[in-house]
Design a protein around this nucleic acid. Sequence first.
RNA 1: GCGGUAGUGGUGAAGUGGUUAACACAUCGGAUUGUGGUUCCGACACGCGUGGGUUCGAUUCCCACCUACCGCCCCA
Length: 429
Amino acid sequence: MRYQRPKGTADILPGTSEKWQFVEETARKLFAAYRYQEIRTPMFESFDVFSRTSGETSDIVTKEMYDFHDKGDRHITLRPEGTAGVVRAFVENKLYGPDTPKPVKMYYMGPMFRYERPQSGRQRQFHQIGVEAFGSESPELDVEVMSMAVNYLQNLGIDDLRVAINTLGDKQTRADYRQALIDYLEPHFEELSDDSKERLHKNPLRVLDSKAPEDQLIVDGAPSILDYLTDDAQKHFDKVTRLLDDLGIKYDVDHTMVRGLDYYNHTIFEIMANAKELGEGYTTICAGGRYDGLVEELGGPQMPGVGFGLGVERLLLLMDSKDFQFPDTFGLDAYVVGISDDASVEALKVVQALRKQDFKADKDYLARKPKAQFKSADKLDAKFTLTLGDKELESNTIHVKNMADGNEVTVDINEVKDNFAELISKNFK
RNA sequence: GCGGUAGUGGUGAAGUGGUUAACACAUCGGAUUGUGGUUCCGACACGCGUGGGUUCGAUUCCCACCUACCGCCCCA
């Protein structure tokens, strides 16, 4: 064991990669139905792209980012999330222009990087699937994005979902609320956990989702952001909840839910699922929200946006815990046994002919004895085992056996080479 | 970055300061010279995460490091 993979990375091996493909395929199909198109952006960006969008929250930028200087002394960051890069591309390629119909709807999937201590479902290289929609302030788009996320998870067999929503309102709302929160917390300063003492002035909203029990007590009595919404913010939020009701999407309003980033406004949401593999109770699998200021922040015009991201590793963990039945994609249709050097050559031709007909076919490449070859056929879960020996070679025939019921028949070899499907329907039930 | 637990073959694992590191599964070979999923027999650890130390001798004791898992910070 000379070399090992870097800390916090994983090899996705055959047997598991099929699950990934399935999850990705499901996303592509569903997102297409919503008219979202794929965008592929670089896996690394200039450090500034992320430091800018992450809003100076020092921990994220200094501690959690995978960054380095390249040979040209450019400060590079391996993307820690999808949104910033998509927004950068949106601006750089002027997708805000009149040529692109609004809203611009895009999705992405791929690896993301965070320099953190690995735990189950949290790795340094992990994968996200996400969507972003630009160019509409309508609450309807908020709800479309949410419903798409819910649909997606349901399609993957995750049904005991909890959708939690909240609003961060507009700038005015947040400024008012931030002050109100500080005013409330300051008298309790000494009772707060050390972490929350830190957070109080840096990012007071973060105190709200502290896990420390002593903080919980104080937070319970804290003012709610819902009482500080401006008229516009209130209107937006009301519309969102009404639309969710109309669509029959169940949700809870959690006024203590916040985001670590400054660019979010109005609707934010998290979708949680219940699985003991991911910890006690409901844990977040998907998170998203509206970010009307972000395009501008990266040098574009004033252009609203909304989106979500979800972690694929956690999703897969969840599906496994629910014993989700992935479609079987690696079953073999035919295994061709060749019982001599000559027969082996002919077997290769048969295998090729079958593959051309779109059957999954394979043969032995280790010059193994017939016995071992038949074992392989069984092991590989082949539906049919075709046998070629000197006997068959002479008469230009081939032996076909249905592995499920043991029925077998000897036929002209060209029947297999020309139309295997017809041969099966003719000879086997 | 901080704290805790662990690290033996392809896999699950037992075990000991000292000649051959259990057992099971898987794999390969044979019984059965052309038919599988059962059975029987046989083979299968460059040696016990890496490096150093203690010792006559270490996989077993000590130290450092690496990695995994759990918790904290963080969670875009």
